[in-house]
Nucleic acid binder design. Structure first.
Lengths: 222, 222
DNA sequence: TGACATTGTCAACACTGTGTTGATAGGTTT
DNA sequence: AAACCTATCAACACAGTGTTGACAATGTCA
């Protein structure tokens, strides 16, 4: 047993054939734009990366483990996008809501096929479900902070525990963006999804639409 | 009504071996309680129903088609439950919301493993996605009627088109109940899910929690 | 009642995809 | 140059899908 970190679901690797690994992941994301994960074979991924099928197994123990690694990287990127967005928002809480939602939508847009594949896998694969849950949970934690802050200022409605409210709102957001982008019916048109979701957040937290029209609003500190 | 309608995805059948078909479906629902659809083979289904694998194909063209038939029947049952629930609610609109949500939760509870399998399949299988979408769309249509009625009475908030609001709320409900029952994280505890969702519906439609405490409320006609 | 269609059944096959083994070639270290 | 990694793949064993063709059992009506 080496002392390399137990790198979830992916075989431990050392520097060199790193290009190959990236080639495999790039192939995966490219092929996911054409068809579902179920219609992509290990052979497709291997050939796409210029290697034979058994060699694929040198890099990943399975197709799913590859997707997991991909999701890991996208999650990293998403955190970065979100971090910048929330920084832009500063202490203006409603702007935090808007920027938070924009960053989720952005990530969905940029990796739509992967997101679909992940949604697909997440009931069959514990590891993927856990990681996806962690991502959402990060959003939920941010949301709870915002709600608590608005509760303390006396501008948010009481009556629903902040975490439960945050969980429901974030799952709503995930699902609405998902159907808007995937064409699943019934869906909200893609260009309307952000506004509708934002207004519902506003009503659920404050009891009215403050955010929709860009009206001046509560700003923390100042 | 003839009894040999062009029955989506399932080979047309005439009376006799009907028991076999039901045995297959019963086996499917039973096995789904133990493991995911991906881990159930056609052979498992066939043996569970006391037939050989090729004979399975006499009844259904594939595993997925079987699940589709199952979903069809559950959808039928769900409509019946919902119909009775809404009848109980009469013209008391908030009670319509509550009863509508209760009936969704009820259906989820009674067929949880099937629901998981369906959620799993629905990104890979057009037919399942369509049928699932139709079910949700039925809920959405009911919801739109309720919102319009409350708008006309002047008690609901304007600002979000009724159908868009209804779509978002119904997908939220689907997702929140799904994670609550499946143990996916982050989730709202099963015994809290109904109340939280109901309050968010209330805030999103009216701007406050009328429904939570069981307070007396708008009753249409009467 | 006996020819005939219909319904139901399955052994055996062809095929696709997965994951493993064992052999091998090149590059580093010792 | 021997021991040792990293990387590679042909060949294999296996699991599951879907199809074919032959065969029984059950009407059915001439």
């Amino acid at each position: 047993m080496t002392d390399i970190a137990p790198d979830r679901g992916r075989r431990q690797r050392r520097p060199t054939g790193d290009d190959r690994e990236r080639a495999i992941l790039a192939t995966a994301e490219r092929l996911l734009e054409e068809r579902g994960l179920g219609d992509i074979s290990v052979d497709d991924l291997a050939r796409g990366a210029g290697i034979s099928r058994p060699t694929f197994y040198f890099y990943f123990p399975s197709k799913e483990a590859g997707i997991l690694t991909l999701l890991d990287r996208v999650a990293e990127e998403a955190r970065a996008i979100r971090g910048r967005a929330l920084e832009r928002a500063g202490r203006d809480v409603p702007e935090i809501w808007r920027q938070g939602l924009v960053s989720i939508l952005e990530t969905f847009r940029q990796h739509q096929p992967l997101m679909l594949a992940v949604a697909n896998m997440s009931s069959g694969n514990d590891e993927v479900r856990r990681l996806w849950g962690e991502i959402i949970d990060g959003f939920v934690a941010d949301t709870v902070l915002g709600i608590d802050s608005e509760l303390q200022r006396g501008v948010a409605l009481e009556g629903i525990p902040a975490r439960e409210l945050a969980i429901a709102l974030n799952w709503m957001t995930e699902r609405v963006f998902h159907v808007a982008l995937s064409g699943q019916e019934p869906a909200i048109a893609e260009h309307r999804a952000l506004e509708v979701v934002l207004r519902i957040w506003s009503r659920a937290i404050y009891g009215d639409d403050g955010l929709g029209a860009g009206a001046g609003w509560s700003t923390l500190g100042g």
